[in-house]
Amino acid sequence: MPKRRCGERDGGSTAKPWKRRLYLVCDDWDSGYSIRKFSLPADSGEGAVQGLPTLFWRVVARHHGGDMIIDVRTRCVVSGPESNSPARPIYFPVGEDRLYVLDSGCLELCRLPPEQSDVESDGDDYSSLDEYDSGSDIDSKDDWFWHQLPMPPFAIIDVTSYAMHPHSHGHSILVSIKSEDLAAATFSFETEVRAWNFLGEWTFPFKGRGHYESELRALVGLSKVKGAFGFIYACDVPNTSNRPPAWKRSKEKVFSKNPADKHVSASLVYLGYQRKFCLVECVLVEEDKACQEVKEDKDDQVLLEKPEGTCVPQRRRYMYRLMTFSLKYDKMGDLRVRHRRVRYYKVPSKVSKACVRQDPVVFWL
C-alpha cells in the first residue's frame, strides 16, 4: 500500500470537505463484505419500503474474521496484528489517528505514525513516545501500526456496556462488567497515563456502546433488557467517588411498535450534534399476521402463536428499520424522544442469518 502524501490524511488543501454519512456493513457476497452509504430520512415514511442504497464499496475478506480496519475516506484496508486475531473486539476511536481495540485478554492501540510534515508543523517530539519504540509492531505494507497496552482486569465476555468520555487532559475508556460469577463493576482506562482504575460496584444502565452527548452532558445508550426493552438511557458521567451515576430513562420506546415487526437486533449511532441519534434496527416482518395475536403488557410487546392448524402460512423477510430522532429534557425533567424520521430497507437475501442476528455494523463517518 503506498504511503500517504502530505495533506492526503485530511483530503489535501484542494479536496472537497468531507460530508459525513451513515455506513452499513453486510456480508452479502461470498468473497467478503459490502458497505452501503445512507442518506438520513428527511421525513417519516413508516409504510415506505425500499432496497438498500447503491453499493459504496466491496471488501474482499473472510467472513467473521474481524481482523481488518477500513478507512472509508481513503478506501484503505489495514490488517490487525497477526499475533492476536480478534475474537470479540470493541473499538474506541480517538480523533483521526488513534484507535483503541479491547479484545480477549488485551488492549491495543492502532495509530498513524507522524509524518515528517506533521512533526515540523506542530513541534511535538514524537520520538519520545513509547508507542513508537522497538516493541511496536509496524506493518511495512501500510502506515498504521499496533502497540500493546496494559491488559484489562476482566474478561471481554463479561463486558455489558462501554463508552468513551473526553476529559480536558485526554480521554477515558469506561467499561462495565457483570456475569453470574462476578459482581457488577465498572473500570476506566486513562489513555494519558495508560492505567486501569476501578470506579465502583455498579454498571451502566444501557447495553453495549454509550455515546457522550455534550448538550445533555450524559452518556446515551440503548436498553435491551426485560422491563426496559427498547428504551433510551441518559446517564451522568461517573466521577471518582465510587458511587453509581444518576440516570434517566426515556418516556418512549424507540424500537418498532408495529405488530408485524419482530425485533431481531439493533445499533444506536450518535450523529455528533444537537442531541441527534440514529437507530438501525433489524426486524423480521410477518407479512401475514393471521397466525399470531399481539398481547400488550407494561414492559414489552409479545407475539403469541395460535394453535397449529388454525392459521394460514406466513411470508417472512428481514428489514432494516432506520430511524433518526433527537432527545431533550421536558419541563418536568423527563427524557423525551422527538422528531422521529423512519425508513424501511429490504435486507438482501444473500445476507447471512448470523449477520442479521448480530447488532448491525453501522458507522457515522
Rank of each mutant, 00 (worst) to 15 (best):
H147G: 07
L304N: 05
K257G: 05
F92S: 01
L365D: 09
L322I: 04
E192M: 12
D97Y: 06
K276D: 05
L219K: 08
M332K: 14
S267W: 04
D143E: 15
T324V: 00
F154D: 02
Y233R: 05
I232L: 08
G230L: 07
I173L: 15
W247D: 11
M151V: 15
G95F: 10
S214Y: 12
K37L: 04
P348S: 08
G12K: 11
S34Y: 04
A246C: 07
T240V: 13
V312M: 04
A354I: 12
K276W: 06
P153N: 02
D28R: 10
K350H: 13
V337M: 01
P360T: 11
K141E: 13
D334T: 10
S140V: 09
M164H: 08
E82R: 15
A42H: 10
C26S: 10
V337D: 02
S121I: 06
D67N: 14
G47D: 15
W57T: 05
Q314I: 07
Y345N: 09
E305D: 12
C110Q: 09
G12H: 14
W364D: 02
G11D: 06
Y126I: 07
D299L: 12
Y344I: 02
D288K: 07
L279P: 01
L102P: 10
F363C: 09
K16R: 15
R243V: 13
P245G: 06
P360S: 01
G230Q: 06
G272T: 02
P205E: 05
A183Y: 08
V351G: 11
T191F: 00
D133F: 04
Q301N: 07
L322Q: 03
L40W: 02
A163T: 12
S121Y: 09
L99Y: 03
G80I: 00
R75T: 09
E96A: 12
Y345T: 00
P150V: 06
A228V: 13
D133G: 13
W18F: 15
P307R: 00
K253R: 11
M319D: 05
G272R: 00
G272D: 04
R62P: 01
A260Y: 00
C278S: 04
R249T: 06
P307G: 00
T14G: 03
A185M: 00
V269H: 04
R341A: 12
L112I: 08
G221C: 10
H64F: 14
S179A: 06
R275N: 15
C291L: 04
V159Y: 02
V220R: 01
Y132G: 09
S83C: 05
I173V: 14
K328A: 14
E252F: 03
G47E: 13
G123M: 03
I177G: 07
T186F: 05
V25W: 03
T14Y: 12
S179Q: 07
P114C: 09
G221R: 02
W364G: 01
A155N: 11
F231I: 01
N242F: 13
V342H: 00
V302Q: 06
P113E: 12
V264R: 03
L219A: 00
L216D: 05
R73Y: 08
K289V: 09
N84L: 09
Y126W: 11
F187N: 00
F255N: 08
E201T: 14
E46D: 11
